[in-house]
């Protein structure tokens, strides 16, 4: 019990970090589902594009010596903003090329296109990186300042990396909240999600709003990609699969199409996973180790969905007859 207590805070921080990471990615799934009622299975690659943009920028800063000269906060800001912008643009391009021409086709058709786009993007990133660096596994350069920890009391340390993830995620979530609830375009996104035909009668250019939704969702994924690289160092073109699947799960858990739901779902999943990884073997006396964390997390997910099939904050996404 001593041990269980002493690691509690550490596990909590890990869970929150993981939860925010899932939440940022889950927003891309849920926002796109909101406006198109369609799962963008290539969103995990949009996330990976962010991770690679971040890695390439940091490697470039390192090679030119800028990493040692520039203020680390400026470096991080530049990298996060660029990853965000390029992932957002990639998501917009994806919508234009792979999904918009299929609007009105049976529902499975764009879904298959999304799976195809996902494979294409994975191997496209691999091709580019192979040509450019002769390697497609990249290691994030270390920023010395991020290796430090903040000491809270005698036994508790929080790595600055974790604080960076939490702070960035909070800023992004607040920004998204204000954008979606307080701006005219944000209200238009919600109107399109509810009833695209009636939204067009308000003078809303529905296709433009859909493109914008992809951009915003993609930008969230891009930020998550950069944060993922900073936090876990090693990335590959295939790094998106597991976080993408978990974030999709988080979106469903929170209620697909529901923005606060995606954040809640991500947090629940992240915390469950972190606590299962650390406590399963303690509680079961070693019978179940950390490797069962996903089994535990998904078992809870299934239980929640049995009792709340629409997710924690789920609601009807579109009006009947609309």
């Amino acid at each position: 019990m001593e041990l269980a207590f002493s690691i509690f805070f550490q596990v909590l921080v890990d869970g929150i970090v993981l939860g925010f990471m899932y939440a940022l990615i889950a927003l891309g799934y849920t926002m796109v589902y909101g406006v198109l009622e369609f799962i963008n299975f290539a969103h995990s690659e949009i996330f990976v594009i962010g991770a690679f943009v971040g890695a390439e920028m940091l490697l470039m800063f390192e090679a030119t010596g800028a990493l040692a000269v520039l203020h680390p906060a400026l470096v991080l800001l530049l990298v996060l903003l660029t990853g965000m912008a390029l992932s957002g643009l990639a998501a917009m391009g994806l919508e234009r090329i792979a999904y918009r021409p299929l609007r009105g086709a049976p529902r499975l058709v764009p879904l298959i296109s999304a799976i195809g786009a996902s494979f294409f993007l994975q191997d496209f990133i691999r091709l580019i990186e192979s040509l450019w660096r002769n390697a497609f596994y990249l290691t994030y350069p270390t920023l010395p300042v991020l290796e430090k920890s903040l000491k809270l009391g005698a036994a508790v340390e929080v790595p600055l990396k974790s604080i960076l993830v939490i702070a960035t995620a909070l800023v992004m979530l607040l920004g998204l909240y204000l954008f979606v609830n307080r701006t005219k375009v944000g209200i238009a996104i919600r109107a399109v999600a509810q009833d695209p035909d009636t939204a067009s009668l308000m003078g809303i250019h529905v296709n433009r709003i859909i493109a914008l939704t992809f951009f915003v969702g993609g930008a969230m994924g891009g930020v998550a990609g950069v944060l993922f690289g900073l936090q876990y160092s090693l990335i590959s073109p295939y790094s998106g699969f597991v976080p993408g699947l978990k974030a999709f799960t988080a979106a469903v858990l929170g209620g697909i199409g529901n923005i606060p739901g995606a954040v809640l779902g991500g947090m629940v999943l992240g915390l469950m996973e972190a606590f299962a990884a650390s406590y399963l073997s303690l509680i079961t006396n070693g019978a179940f180790g950390a490797e069962y964390k996903d089994v535990f997390a998904f078992a809870v997910l299934i239980l929640i969905l049995i009792f709340r099939p629409k997710g924690l904050l789920g609601e009807k996404v579109r009006e009947e007859g609309a």
Partner: peptide
């Protein structure tokens, strides 16, 4: 031209004020 559709089709999850603001989108 403004169209009030059959069955009203208000945005039921938005507030009254948001519905009116979205009407003024243009």
């Amino acid at each position: 031209v403004a169209h009030v559709p059959e069955g009203r089709k208000i945005f039921s999850r938005l507030t009254v004020l948001e519905n009116l603001k979205i009407g003024a989108y243009t």
